[in-house]
Structures are given as structure tokens and as C-alpha cells.
Design a protein around this nucleic acid. Structure first.
Lengths: 355, 355
DNA sequence: CTCAGTGATGTAATCGATTACATTATGCTA
DNA sequence: TAGCATAATGTAATCGATTACATCACTGAG
């Protein structure tokens, strides 16, 4: 913290006024005489005074800080949401206290405790698991919450996320309509609502077209690169592998692609991939046919807007809002159709370490 | 902020003790009688009391918060540094106030002002530009600073970064030793020290081997995908394009690869790429020969450790540390050698929007 | 028995702001 | 010119903790 900066008292003494007057100048209270204001402003400058927002927060009971909890920081998807959030809250005069839950409900609970103690004005959470029991402490503390990307059980709340069912349903439908009915599925842990919903969309698309789902070519893992790699292997080692695979997240898509690149030469037929998520590098993944592009930044922006609205509503009317219904905003995904799956082969080489 | 939570006063009343006693219990002061402690603890639980760290911070003049300023949030490299920082500071009991400078010195200055006013205990900055004049306000406020990844002029400070010169020098040397002397260069804005240093390493490697640099195949841009794409085009449109190109950052490497993929069929010869940075997706970039892998998380960890040491030193001895010399920690990069540049072609297709 | 020492707890000032309320000065009306 | 509205500023309580110092009870030494 600041070592020995001037305080409001120092400025007051210097300007020969009371601290109340200085405070009013700082806060642009209109009933300060222009000449006084000028003198105070000058003293503020000459003393190098800077407001201490900790003191201010204590008094006005508002920190202008919002908490953001994500399962992981080094993750393009989550951090693009964070970017949307930061943009939006910064424009509204808030700053962002960020915490990683490390994909772990216990750590998530700890981080939330900390945010509460630090008196954040609101919180945006990308839940680590489907377990939201520990979020109720926020509610008890009267802290507005908005969830992003995923929902949780035990804790109904406002949330902003993509329309997962619709997205995967459309992508899979498109593949079927192009003439391929046997579509494999690679998905994330069904504990996560996003994984559930994307699976549901897949099943719906099949049902819409009278296609019966086939156990053997439906695989679940955990939304990470390695899992995508492993599951694509499992699929390709089936007696009768599918010619098209729907992969329900970006990182699994990458892992699966890596597997195909590594084994392209030995596979009888390289499948095409329909994928959920279209991120910065998706266009480099050689086997993609269709992808569902999430409006990722927009998810962050909307979540932040919603949160700020809630905070300001609460500021105006601090007694029970008792709003009984929560708002779940499902933004539409965008279907990106690529050329027919390429026949060319993507190159990948493992490296060996030198020296 | 919290609506109506119990305060230390409420707990004190409930337990029939003074607030001092409650505070001592909270802070594990040993001279509290076991029976009293028990009673107070029970009252804390039953009242749902949580400490208000804002009030505490005001009194003890320490927020246990550190600021982190990066040029961009949705960036794998910066956020991997952030991950290392978060891990480390969280373990030491600090939390992270994060801000994006949007690659813009003016915004950077604003964010730093805000961090000062919020009384952070220290700051880690990945500078947006080489201009560090606005950092001196931190010094004046007595706030410890550590820079990461880049240095700035006008503000000598502790810093943690990779050894850029050494990394690019080794990578380029390796290419030369493999028999290719005409190596193109694609680099970032020389305003950034990282861009400067990597260029310097390139030149040094050439000089080491008696190779004269060739203006026409040395191109500068801005460390982004589009710039990499554009510069690779420029290079390939030279009358006599090089057969090997050194690209001095991850995103430019990606952009350049995209250009090559898009134009592989029309190019007389697709160059191999030696690159600075080896990130999650580098192995998917088909033309890489050698890459310099930065210890990215480690940069974040070390920066955080250094900062925390400085903070704690200052806590112990708040008067002028006046340490005259700053510590610049240059971590070694790791050279990753891939198989010879692939002859296979990576596939990429642009998409068209449907519906 | 007295008194110093020790342990447990309380009193009250303090951190740096904000703000309700009080006070004073000023101008305007009748 | 009295009287009152209004403008400008000051006084002091307050936010919720921490902590130096004071107090008090008890123990054991002399």
C-alpha cells in the first residue's frame, strides 16, 4: 500500500478548509464556490494527493470491484469471456478481481469466500462443476451473481451462455442432410451442463432425422486436448469407425485433430469433424466441416451488463429485491460451414529436445 | 458489498466480550484463554460473521491484493503468465486485480492510476509499449513493481523475461549450421524490447557465421496474426524468397503459417519456419523446424515471487529501501528441434456463413 | 502480607474517507 | 431594516476493523 501519500486531511490543512470541503471537491459536489474549488484543486495537485479508495469503500459500502472466477486462466475461451467482462465493467467504473478455481469445486468455494471478504460488489462465475451449493453464501451476503457458460444445480441464478442444444443440433442436422447419418460423438463430462446440452442437441438432431444413436461411437471425456486425442483414438479403433464425428468443444477438437494428423497415414479413412466452438485457430484444423461459433466476447459483455444492472438496482433499492425469477440468456451460436473436408493431410511432428 | 452481515461488534456483544478480544481470536493471538476463544468462535459461527477485509486493510495499511496489467486478456501467452502469477500470489495469500491496457500506453497509465488508488500492495506489468514514464507514479507511491516479458525505457525496474537474444541466436544458428544461410526474418515492432532483442539475436547468429544480413528479406510488423500473414506474403512475393524464415513470435508464426497454407499450391517452394515461442498449438503448425520455447508459466511465477519478496521486505522495513540496483532475471529458452520441414501440406479452408 | 510479574481482557484512538446536520454569510423582499 | 431563503462551509459521527495502553485478577517470592 501507499507509503506516506498525502491524505484528505493534509490537503484540507494546506488549503485552509475542512476535510468536508475537500471531499466535496473530489466528488464534484456542485455547492462549492468556484474560487474554493480552484484553490483545493491546486492543493491536491501540489501535494500529490490521491484518493484512498479503501477508505472510501469502507464508508460508502461499495468497492467498485467485481469478482470473476474461472476454472482456468490459461484458456482462450474463458479469457475471451474475461475480456468481454473487463471491457464492460471497466467502462462502468469497476475493476476486476480475478481468481482461478482450478476446475475444482473446493477451490472455487475458497475463492468465493475470499471475494466475499474483499467485499466485491458482484461476481461473475464460470462454474467449475455442476455443484453450486457454495454459491449460496453469495446470495446470503446479498452479492449479485451472474453465471457464464455453464449452469449449476442447487443454485438458480441469472446466467449468460450460448444456446448449446440449438447449436449442436443444427450442426449435426447439417451433416445428416449432407448425406452422412453415422456420426460419432466426442463430448465432455456430463457433469457440466454445457456438455449435457451439446449431447442433447446431437441426440435431437439424430431423432429429428430418424437416426438411431449408436452406443459404440459415442464417447465422453473431459473437454481437454488429451481427452480429445484419446477419444478419437477409441473411435478410430472401433471395428466400424464413423466417417464424420461431432466434437463438442474446441480443445477436444484440437486433440482429436492431433490424433488424426499423427495417424492419417495408417487410417483406412480419415473422418471429417463437425465441432462446437470456432476459435482463433479452428481454421488451422484440417478436417473441420462445420463448426458452431459461440459469441464468446458477447457472453462476457452480456454477463457483465446484467451484473451491473443488478448491482445498480440493488444500490438504488437495498432492501429485498425478492425478484423471484432468474434470467437465463441464451445467445445463438453461428453455424460456420467450411469446404468439404480436405483430402490433404495436415502435418504434425513431435519434437525431440536438443542440448 | 455485503448488505447487513454481522460485524465484529455484533460478535463481541453476542459473546459478551470486547471487540478487541474478538479481533484477537480472529487473528489467532495466543494470549486468549481457551474457553473464551471457544465461546467467541461459536458466536462467529452462529452469527455468520465474516471479516470485512476493507476495514482491515484500511487499518493495517495492506490490501493483500496485487495488480496485474497486461496488454490484452484474450492472449494465451499473457494469460499463461497470469496463471503463474495467480498460482503464486494466491499461495501467499494475495489476490489478483487484473487490468488490460489494450496495448495502449494511455490506457495503461489510467489502469495504473486506478491500481494505486485501490492501494494494491504491488504490481506486475507486461508493458504495452516501451514507454514507462507513467510507471514512476508507482515508485513515488512506494509500490513495488516487477515487469514481465518486456522492459521499458525511463523506468529501470526488476523484471523477469526470457533470454530473447540467446534464444533467437541459437535457433537461427541451428538453421545455418544445417546448411541454410539465407534466412528471412519476420519480427515485431522494434519499439518493444522483446522484438528488439530477438532481432538482435538473429543478427548475432548471422554475424557469428559470417552471413551478411539482407534487407529485402527482413520484415517488421506487430506481433499479431494478421501481421504475420501479411509479412509472409511480402516475403514470398520477393523476387528471390528465402527458403527458411525466422519468425519472432507465436502469433506471427500462426499468421505466416496460414498464408503458406492458403498459397502452398501456387508457391514455387514453401519455406520452413524457425520460430520464437512454442505454445500449445505450435505442434499443429506444419512448417516449423525449430522453435524457442519460453518458460511462460515460470516467468509468471518468478515475477510473482520476486514481487512478493519485495513487498515483504518493505513490510518489514518501510523506510527507504533505496536499493540502487534492479534485478533483471533472464530465464533461458529451450530449443525444440522438429523433424525436417514437412513435405505434406497443411489444409486450411475459409468458411462461408450459412443462414 | 505485600508486591512484582504474568496472563486475560477491556478502553479508546486510529486508519482515510463521507455526510447529516449545524453554522455562518449573503442576498433579496417587503 | 428586519426577516428569511439560499449558498458555502465546518463539525463531528461513522464505516469495521486493529492495537497501544490500561486495567484487573491471580500467583508466588520474600
Amino acid at each position: 500500500m501507499r507509503g506516506m501519500g498525502a491524505t484528505i486531511k493534509d490537503v484540507a490543512r494546506l488549503a485552509g478548509v475542512s476535510t468536508a470541503t475537500v471531499s466535496r471537491v473530489i466528488n464534484n459536489d456542485p455547492r462549492i464556490a468556484p474560487t474554493t474549488r480552484e484553490r483545493v484543486v491546486e492543493c491536491i495537485r501540489s501535494s500529490g494527493y490521491r484518493i484512498n479508495k479503501i477508505a472510501r469503500s469502507l464508508k460508502i459500502n461499495k468497492t467498485h470491484t467485481i469478482g470473476f472466477v474461472a476454472p482456468e486462466l490459461a484458456n482462450d475461451f474463458f479469457m475471451t469471456i474475461a475480456k468481454g467482462v473487463e471491457e464492460t465493467v471497466a467502462a462502468a467504473g469497476y475493476s476486476l478481481l480475478i481468481a482461478s478455481s482450478n476446475e475444482n469445486a473446493a477451490q472455487e468455494a475458497l475463492r468465493i469466500d475470499l471475494l466475499i471478504e474483499k467485499c466485491v460488489d458482484g461476481v461473475i462465475i464460470i462454474p467449475a462443476t455442476s455443484n453450486g451449493r457454495h454459491f449460496i453464501e453469495l446470495r446470503e451476503g446479498g452479492i449479485p451473481v451472474v453465471l457464464a457458460d455453464r449452469l449449476v444445480s442447487d443454485f438458480p441464478a441469472d446466467a449468460v451462455l450460448v444456446d448449446n442444444v440449438q447449436g449442436s443440433r443444427e450442426a449435426v442436422a447439417l451433416v445428416i442432410e449432407e448425406g452422412c447419418e453415422r456420426i460419432g460423438f466426442i463430448g465432455g463430462d456430463l457433469d457440466l451442463t454445457s456438455a449435457q446440452e451439446r449431447f442433447k442437441g446431437y441426440l435431437k438432431a439424430l431423432a429429428d432425422h430418424g437416426v438411431r444413436p449408436e452406443q459404440a461411437i459415442i464417447k465422453f471425456g473431459d473437454f481437454h486436448i488429451d481427452s480429445g486425442y484419446a477419444l478419437m483414438r477409441e473411435l478410430m479403433e472401433e471395428p466400424n469407425p464413423p466417417e464424420h464425428v461431432f466434437i463438442s468443444n474446441y480443445y477436444m477438437h484440437i486433440g482429436a485433430t492431433m490424433y488424426l494428423v499423427d495417424h492419417a497415414s495408417t487410417l483406412p479413412r480419415v473422418p471429417a469433424i463437425a465441432g462446437f466452438d470456432d476459435m482463433e485457430f479452428t481454421s488451422l484444423l484440417g478436417f473441420a466441416s462445420v463448426t458452431v461459433k459461440q459469441p464468446v466476447i458477447e457472453i462476457g459483455r452480456r454477463a457483465a451488463e446484467l451484473l451491473i444492472r443488478k448491482i445498480e438496482a440493488k444500490d438504488k433499492n437495498p432492501n429485498q429485491p425478492a425478484r423471484p425469477r432468474f434470467q437465463i440468456l441464451r445467445l445463438p451460436g453461428e453455424l460456420l460451414v467450411r469446404d468439404r473436408p480436405q483430402k490433404t493431410i495436415l502435418a504434425r511432428s513431435d519434437f525431440h529436445l536438443q542440448k
